[in-house]
Structures are given as structure tokens and as C-alpha cells.
Design a protein around this nucleic acid. Structure first.
Length: 272
DNA sequence: ATGCGGACCTGTTAGC
DNA sequence: TGCTAACAGGTCCGCA
């Protein structure tokens, strides 16, 4: 479900409730998530400590206390919500972090592709984080980087920019959108794109993500922020979900192909 | 190393 | 209306 803008929206939503609050209880209903450390082991470390910060790394969130970091990934269908204490749990509500204020943080994930893990030491060395590429909204991400890392790569450029080892946070929706804005065909081989075009693409990725964050992300079916509100970027989508409809630039019919199982929509006229 | 397909799960929707 | 297949915002793993 969530790409970088949705995770960042979630981060901003939970931060004011969580930072400075002490963990009073942890309720685990479903421990079988995509974890490295058994989820139950986080209890001992986190109970009675307070959360000092909520930072995002790619699509991961890190809630840090003096003892270590709670690492959360929302997978394809996960969400985090702030709810009043005592709110009854529903079917896919797997973990609650209960605070000493009036609230709890609830992790929900029907498909269980998400992660709720515990990290001690430097989180950058955690196996899920250590090989991640740069953050797209920082200066360490650029057209130059995409150009250099794509040389001799034959993969389609869309798969290339969705590879978290290259750059983090770009999922299927925003990959489609950024490629359209940059005028690049998603099927083009990554190694056969010029530096100039990669500079346009890196800027398109930044612009798309920033715009989406501004309006609270994209809600297709069930994404909500931590208050239960949807995001409004869906109205701004130029190609994703619009196969067969007309291009917003040239009116030509948008095409759809599947790239490693992911739907890829593009304009055959505007994207070369 | 790179590229590809399958695996992990459940819910919703499209099609017969 | 009901059944089945395909699809969905992600990522890791094993194999060639």
C-alpha cells in the first residue's frame, strides 16, 4: 500500500502523540509478520521507556527510545493509527503500543507483509536497512547517481528506480507518475538513458513525492493517515490507474504493460 | 553481479 | 446470485 509519501504522512501524524510519551503496555495479537527479531522480545526493552523521535528511512519508520529502535514497515496493506485507549481491536489489528497519555498506536496489516521489529545499536546496520540506497528528497539523490549506477544495466528503467538499493521510497504509483513527467518510457533499458534525461527523471521523482506529501499521500482503496483521513493525491494522478484513458498532455490513448508483475501505464507518444 | 520468477498473505473486484 | 481468477500501494530469496 504505502509508498514514501504515505509513510511520511503517517510519520507526521503519529509524531506529536508519540514523542515524549512513555510506553505503558504492548499488546501483540499477531506475531507472525515479516520480522527478523521475534516481536515479543521488544516488550522488555520498550516498556517504561519514552519515545524520543520518529524518523523515516525509505518506507521504514524508526521509533527510538534509549534502549533501541522500534522498526516498522507497512508492507502492502499496513497502517498505523492513533486511537483512544481502550478502542476495541478488529481482525487485522496486530500490535498496540499503549502510551501513558490517552492514546495508543495501533499497527494494522491484513496481508502481513509488514514488519514490527526491534533494533539495538545502529539501525543503519540492520539487515533490512543496511543496503538501502539514498533518500530521494535529499541532495544525495541526483540524476548523476541514477546515471552512474545504471551503466551496463539492462533492466527496464521503471524496475531500476523501484529498486530500493538504487533509491528508496519509489513504489509503483510514483514510478509511473515520475516517468510520465520525465517523458521516459518505463520499458527503456536503464543503461541506455542519458545523464540529461536522468537529471529530468530525478527531478520528476522529487517533485512527485513532494506534491504527494503535501496532500497527504494517495488513497486508492484503504490508505488513511493516523487520524483515519484519506490522502488526496489520487486526483493528481496522470497515468497510474488510467490505462485506456487519454493522455493529459496529448490526448493519445494510454498503454499498459506489466513489468515484473507490476502494472505500468504510460503514454506511447509522450514517453520515449 | 544481474535478472527473473516465485513466495509471503488477505481482501476486493471483474468476468463468466 | 455465486463461483473463480486476477489483481492490489512491497520486498526478499533462490536459481540460472
Amino acid at each position: 500500500m504505502p509508498e514514501l509519501p504515505e509513510v511520511e504522512t503517517t510519520r507526521r501524524g503519529i509524531e506529536p502523540y508519540v514523542v515524549g510519551s512513555t510506553v505503558e503496555a504492548i499488546n501483540v495479537r499477531q506475531a507472525r509478520l515479516r520480522n527478523v527479531v521475534p516481536i515479543r522480545s521488544l516488550k522488555r526493552a520498550l516498556l517504561g521507556t519514552s519515545i524520543q523521535s520518529v524518523i523515516r528511512r525509505g518506507k521504514y519508520l524508526l521509533l527510538s527510545s534509549v534502549n533501541g529502535h522500534l522498526l516498522i514497515h507497512l508492507g502492502m496493506s499496513g497502517s498505523l493509527r492513533i486511537l483512544p485507549k481502550g478502542t476495541p481491536a478488529q481482525k487485522h489489528d496486530h500490535v498496540d503500543i499503549v502510551f501513558d497519555n490517552h492514546y495508543l498506536l495501533r499497527f494494522t496489516d491484513p496481508r502481513k507483509f509488514g514488519v514490527v521489529d526491534w533494533v539495538t545499536g545502529n539501525p543503519d546496520e540492520h539487515s533490512l536497512l543496511t543496503h538501502l540506497g539514498p533518500e530521494p528528497l535529499t541532495g544525495s539523490f541526483s540524476g548523476q547517481l541514477l546515471f552512474e549506477r545504471s551503466r551496463k544495466r539492462s533492466v527496464a528503467v521503471k524496475q531500476f528506480i523501484m529498486d530500493s538499493h538504487i533509491v528508496v521510497g519509489v513504489g509503483n504509483i510514483y514510478a509511473n507518475e515520475a516517468l510520465f513527467k520525465a517523458g521516459i518510457n518505463p520499458l527503456r533499458q536503464a543503461g541506455r538513458i542519458s545523464l540529461k534525461r536522468y537529471e529530468k527523471l530525478s527531478q520528476a521523482i522529487k517533485d512527485t513525492l513532494i506534491e504527494a506529501i503535501k496532500v497527504g499521500g494517495t488513497t486508492l482503496r484503504d490508505f488513511t493517515n493516523s487520524d483515519g483521513q484519506p490522502g488526496y493525491f489520487k486526483q493528481s494522478l496522470l497515468v497510474y490507474g488510467r490505462a485506456g484513458q487519454s493522455c493529459r498532455k496529448c490526448r493519445y490513448r494510454l498503454s499498459e504493460v506489466r513489468l515484473s508483475g507490476r502494472s505500468s501505464v504510460y503514454c506511447p507518444r509522450c514517453q520515449k
